[in-house]
Design a protein around this nucleic acid. Sequence first.
DNA 1: CTGTTAGCGCGTTCAA
DNA 2: TTGAACGCGCTAACAG
Lengths: 335, 335
Amino acid sequence: MAKSITIKDIAREAGVSIALVSFVMNNRVGADGKQKYRVSPTTRDKILEVARQMHYQPSSAARMLRKGRTHVVGVILSDLSNLFYGVIAKELEMILYQHGYTPLFFSTEEDPERFGRVIQLASERDVEGFIVVPAAGSAKYVEQLQASETPFVVIDRYYPPHSVPSVLVDNEDAMRLAVRNLQERGARNIALVSYAMRISSMTDREKSFREQLGEQAPIYFLGFNSVEEDAEKAVDQILALHIDGVVTASNIPGVAIIKALMRRGIRIQQDILLTSFDFSNTYSLFNPPIPYIQQPLKQIAAESAAYLFKLIAMKEQGQDFHAVTDHIVLKARLV
Amino acid sequence: MAKSITIKDIAREAGVSIALVSFVMNNRVGADGKQKYRVSPTTRDKILEVARQMHYQPSSAARMLRKGRTHVVGVILSDLSNLFYGVIAKELEMILYQHGYTPLFFSTEEDPERFGRVIQLASERDVEGFIVVPAAGSAKYVEQLQASETPFVVIDRYYPPHSVPSVLVDNEDAMRLAVRNLQERGARNIALVSYAMRISSMTDREKSFREQLGEQAPIYFLGFNSVEEDAEKAVDQILALHIDGVVTASNIPGVAIIKALMRRGIRIQQDILLTSFDFSNTYSLFNPPIPYIQQPLKQIAAESAAYLFKLIAMKEQGQDFHAVTDHIVLKARLV
DNA sequence: CTGTTAGCGCGTTCAA
DNA sequence: TTGAACGCGCTAACAG
């Protein structure tokens, strides 16, 4: 900053020592007691007054350097332009700020290379921890994180090879809700439309689907980068097989399937029943609205942040945070 | 970090001075020449090798402190969970990283208080500049920014009282496109559904609407926090007035109006024609798809970043960046 | 009880 | 190629 004013300036101006200014700045306690360093109210007020007048802004760089803490956490999401992650981002932002942390957001677009790169970028910024949604196929980087000295929490997915701290929903249970919903509405011939991405959320849902409807129950996969075309193909099959109920395993496939069905003049919720995972405001256009599995996003954000704070605290106290790898499993609701 | 290794460690290990290590680290040029500080290739390679082996990570805090630059910019958006801003966020993220900057994202949820608060938070992190979408009613804080020594660029909106650096679309022109589109499709009786928020994007659209269709042309306003209810009321009016074409001034009002119409059994694109601003994947469900005004989001991101870089560079060179307040106006397209 | 001195953290950079 | 000062704020140790 052109001529940002420092603690030194305000010390000179107030006619006191630098140290005293620092003390005061770190004891901006209300009118109560508990001042670790005692300073006479008069000088304290004067210092505060001078600081205000000069628009003093402590240099976070200096503070970080001295204290060895940045209070920054890296938040690596799949795609900020997806509502699902957008909501999580917003919630995390609030929670982290409430705890004095600043989030550094990154999106991977489900590209493992980018996942690796943003971890590197975040590390260069000295993040104290990570909350991440690992891109499909980025096992290598998750292991790298695990080997590092930076605590992290995985959300939305888990990482099979090794156990890592995770916060996610009970996808198998959620799928049971979805299938039951279709059955109760009269569907007899149910298909699942999933993402081709091999991430635990999808595979868990698929597994649960087959457990309920048999190993032969039809599952269609949409590629992350070819959702529309693949949806067309899937719908062709669905119609050919006289499917009367479809579960879509995420909102993007959900919307794609709806589009493909409508394009063919199929009446949704009449000719074919739908139930989806994750919200899209498209769902409420139909009559009755398309039911969907609602993940507790706020809770995911809150739990993952709390989890990370715990790990950071452990590390701070010299404990072995690597030993903690619990999974926090939350229940999803059908709406 | 527990025992993060510093430049000193690698100096000791390599048997050279600290300064030399620093030089080498700042001259990681390829095998070409141009080394500002020349170092014998042997020692250079040895240093680089040791650094790699020890996983040396320079402390960004120390670097920031010493160089007086953070390479961080604050990006203040309305709401990360809105697709419009999500896309902008993603684009800005990429561009900023490509230029060696790190974005610090904040959402205001259109709350002026929060807008003020996040500016403060960002300042505490020593951001070098801002790219902001000022919340409705936050003139006070924009002026505060203007009085500060931190360059900033406003996007999506402009700020009437004073001129500030801005990047936005030609909303009046865009509205002409929208109205003409409805007219060409045969609409004779057109209404506008806008946001009650008093931000320039909305008022410009409203103004243009009335310029084309007369001062009596009906405009309905939806409150930011009462979109659904207000949409119901608006639709009641729209039906009572036998409106046959509706422009919605943003995607959220657009979706709300669609819902309200469908709830009443009105056939969209048949009983009533719609054209909207901004994208929603709801639009393509209809036949024909609902046309919409597409803002060049990538371009907005690119231009605003470039603009900010320019301002930062000016400041760096001691020029008066406050003197620059140009508006960059981009054209929107009808899709 | 109130206030000061001085060294530190880590990388950068100038003078030697 | 190196020594040493420096940027800014924190804090242990100490003095009045």
